[in-house]
Amino acid sequence: MASKKNININLKIWRQKNGNVKGQLVDYKLDNVSTDSSFLEMLDQLNEQLVSQKQEPVAFDHDCREGICGSCSLFINGRAHGPDTGITTCQLHMRMFKDGDTIYVEPWRSRAFPIIKDLVVDRSAFDRIQQAGGFVSVNTSGRTIDANTIPVPKENADKAFEAAACIGCGACVATCKNGSAMLFVGAKVSQYALLPQGKVEATQRVMNMVRQMDEEGFGNCTNTGACEIECPKGISLENIARMNREYLKASLK
C-alpha cells in the first residue's frame, strides 16, 4: 500500500486492574510499528510484547475491526477514536502518527460508563435506554402487512437510515464535555419518529427513553456539537433537535 514505513512511538496508556481500584497512566515504548497497521493492531503488537515479557496485556474492547460493531472505544490524544474524523478506533491507522510521537490512550470517561478494566468500560446504560423504548412493539410473527403497503418518502427513509447508522460506541458521551448521551438517544428517537411504523408509540418512546437516559447519570446537552464531529458515523445534531421537538410534543400531550 501507499506507505511502507515503520515508526517508533511512546504510549501513555490508562491501566486499572478493575473498577474498585485506582488506575494510572503507564508509559510504554513500542518500536517498529508499521504505518499501515491499524491502531488496534498496534495495541496487539504491544500486547504481544507485554505477554512475551510475562506482563499483563492491556485490556481493550474490540471486535469487528471494520468500524461497525461499535466495540472499540479509545480516547486517543484527547479525542474519541483518535485524531481523524468519521472513523472508529479500529479504522484509525498509524500513518496518522509520526515517528517519536507520544500517544495518550484513555478509556471513555463517564459516570454512566464505569471502568471494568484498563480501557474497557461498561456501556450497558445504552442497552437499558434501548430497552426503555427503542423499538416498535410489533410481534415477530411475520404476519404483518406487506412491506410495500405504506410508502415512505425516500427523504424520510434516508434520514431514518442516517440516524439508525449509529453504532452505539459511546464516542458522543466520551467526547461531550458534559458526558451527555443525547446524540445516541436522539438518533434512536429520530429513526422511529421519521418512519410511519414508529409514529404510533412516539409519545411513550421519547418520554421513556429520555427518562432512562437521565436515570443513567449522563450529563445534559449544551449543544456544543462535539458529538457530531467525533461521531464515527456522522450522526447529525439535527437528531437531537428532532428529539427535543418530539419530547416537547410528548410533554404537552
Binding site: 501513555k12 490508562w14 497512566l25 480516547f75 490524544n77 484527547g78 479525542r79 485524531p83 495518550y104 484513555e106 470517561r109 463517564s110 459516570r111 454512566a112 464535555k177 458534559n178 458526558g179 451527555s180 447519570g217 449522563f218 450529563g219 445534559n220 449544551t222
Partner: peptide, 13 residues
C-alpha cells in the same frame, strides 16, 4: 454535567 464525568481525561483536545 460536572458530576457526569467524575474522573476527567489526562489529555483533552
Amino acid at each position: 454535567n460536572k458530576a457526569a464525568r467524575p474522573v476527567g481525561y489526562a489529555k483533552v483536545n
